[in-house]
Amino acid sequence: MAFGAFANSGPDLSAAAPRRRSYVAIILLAPGVVYLLATFVAPLVSLVLTSFKEPGGDFEVGEYVYAFRWENYAEAIGRFGEIFLRTFGYSLLATILALLISYPLAYFIGVTLRRFPLWQSLVLILVIAPFFISFLLRTLAWKAIFADEGPVVSFLQAIGILGPEDYLNGTAFTVIFGLTYNYIPFMTLPIYTSLERLDLRYVEAGGDLYAGPAQRFWRIILPLSLPGVVSGTLLTFIPASGDYVNASKDFLGSTNTVMAGNVINDMFFQSFYPLSAAVSILLMIAILIPVVAYVARSGSEDLL
């Protein structure tokens, strides 16, 4: 049930399927299994092996041999512990912000615009439109907008919100802004899909049973669109916590906003492969724990 959040909760047929069919099922599943083995399991095994490697015999930079050097992990946690926390904090904030922006937007498209299918498609295209421009270019454009001499900073300085020496680029603000901005479509689309199917007769029934607008939202609309919210938050949180573009100093970040993705990137290009691999594994575990807890909770029967 845990990952039911991703599926259109259909009936669980697997348990009831007669034994005879399992043979067909295996054949049908084979391509998927092969694909998973090739693209997920194999790199993962390689990554784990790399993360325990130690420097090779000649002690040249970039030469490593297979070993069991668990100190790589100790080093990763010791040196980058703070960065892990920051990564988690930034991604979480970006996810929450994206949710707060996306839900009303998705509601507007999926419910309010229901009677105007043409407008519905148009606004939906607008949500996806940013994808037509390269992710890197869009992020660079924001860097220009937030530049020290740029319009936003000048304006905020003029009205006194920012001091004359203050700036935006390279701060937590711009990084979280970039993350939120870049992942909003991933949040909006699954929520839209859920809300578009929402049967408004349930909402009417709620009104008939003395629920005011707030109660109708919390007790009926939100629970019924929860699958979309769960998929959307996962599709935002997971890639955001691995993101290394927004927080990079070439884009919206600085040395003060380094995220785990940047560390992996930097260590890799400086040829510290085992350390880079260890950070990757740690990041994966660090993401997996809250995600599994979240999915398990939202998939459980008595969430609300």
């Binding site: 007769r201 029934a205 629970p223 019924l224 609300l304």
Partner: peptide
């Protein structure tokens, strides 16, 4: 102060 038994029931599925 009105309650309705809806033609389509509209029972909350969740």
């Amino acid at each position: 102060p009105v309650n309705t038994v809806f033609q389509s029931y509209a029972l909350f599925p969740h």
